[in-house]
Simulated assay, not measured.
Amino acid sequence: MIEIQNLSKIYNTKNGVVKGVDDVTLSIQKGEIYGIVGYSGAGKSSLLRCINLLERPSTGHLTVDGTDLTSLKGEPLRLARLKIGMIFQHFYLISQKTVFENIAFALKAAKVPSKEITKRVESLLDMVGLSDKRDVYPSQLSGGQKQRVAIARALANNPKVLLCDEATSALDPTTTKSILNLLKKINEELDITVVLITHEMNVVKEICHRMAIMQDGRVIEEGAVYKIFSNPKTALAKEFIASVVSFDIPESIVRSCTGPIVKVTFRGKVAGEGVISDTLQQFNLKGNFLHCSIEYIQEMPLGIFVMELKGEKKEIQKALDYIEHRDAQVEVLRDGI
Rank of each mutant, 00 (worst) to 15 (best):
L196N: 00
D191T: 06
K205P: 04
T193H: 11
I228C: 02
V219M: 07
A237F: 08
Q215D: 08
L236F: 12
K185P: 12
L196E: 04
V225E: 01
M211L: 11
A224H: 14
D216S: 00
R210T: 10
G217E: 02
E188Y: 06
L236T: 15
I192Y: 06
A224V: 12
S178M: 13
K184Y: 14
M201Q: 11
M201A: 10
V204M: 11
T198K: 01
I207Y: 00
A235E: 13
E221W: 01
V225C: 02
A212W: 08
C208M: 03
R210H: 12
T198V: 03
I192P: 00
G223A: 09
I186E: 05
T193D: 03
M201K: 10
L190N: 11
P232L: 10
T193Q: 09
T198A: 05
V219K: 01
K177E: 15
I220S: 07
T193W: 12
V194M: 10
N202R: 15
C208Q: 07
M214H: 03
H209M: 11
I197A: 09
A235V: 10
A224K: 15
V195S: 05
K233Y: 07
K184G: 14
I179H: 06
K185R: 15
K185T: 13
T193Y: 13
N187T: 05
C208L: 08
C208A: 13
D191Y: 02
H199V: 02
K184W: 12
G217H: 06
Q215F: 06
A235D: 14
S230M: 08
K233G: 13
K227Y: 13
I213E: 03
L180M: 03
R218V: 09
A224R: 14
I220H: 08
V194T: 04
H199C: 01
D216H: 00
K177V: 14
E189C: 04
A235Q: 12
R210W: 06
K238Y: 03
S230Y: 12
L183W: 03
K185F: 10
V195G: 05
M211H: 01
C208V: 04
L190I: 05
A224T: 12
A212F: 08
E221Y: 08
K227E: 14
I213K: 02
A235F: 02
Y226F: 14
E200L: 03
V204Y: 00
L180G: 00
N187D: 03
H209Q: 14
A224N: 15
N231Y: 09
V203L: 07
I213Q: 05
N202T: 13
I220R: 07
V225D: 00
V219F: 08
L182C: 08
E200C: 05
I179F: 05
A224F: 13
I228S: 03
L236C: 07
K177Y: 15
D191R: 11
V194C: 11
N181V: 12
V204D: 06
A237I: 10
Y226G: 02
S230D: 04
M214G: 10
V194P: 10
I228H: 02
I197L: 12
L236M: 12
I179C: 07
D191E: 11
G217I: 00
V204P: 07
A212D: 03
V194A: 10
I213Y: 04
F229P: 00
D216K: 00
Q215K: 13
E189G: 04
L180W: 00
N181Q: 15
P232A: 10
A212G: 02
K227I: 07
N231W: 09
D216T: 00
K233C: 09
I186F: 09
Y226S: 02
K185E: 13
I179M: 02
I228G: 05
F229I: 07
S178W: 09
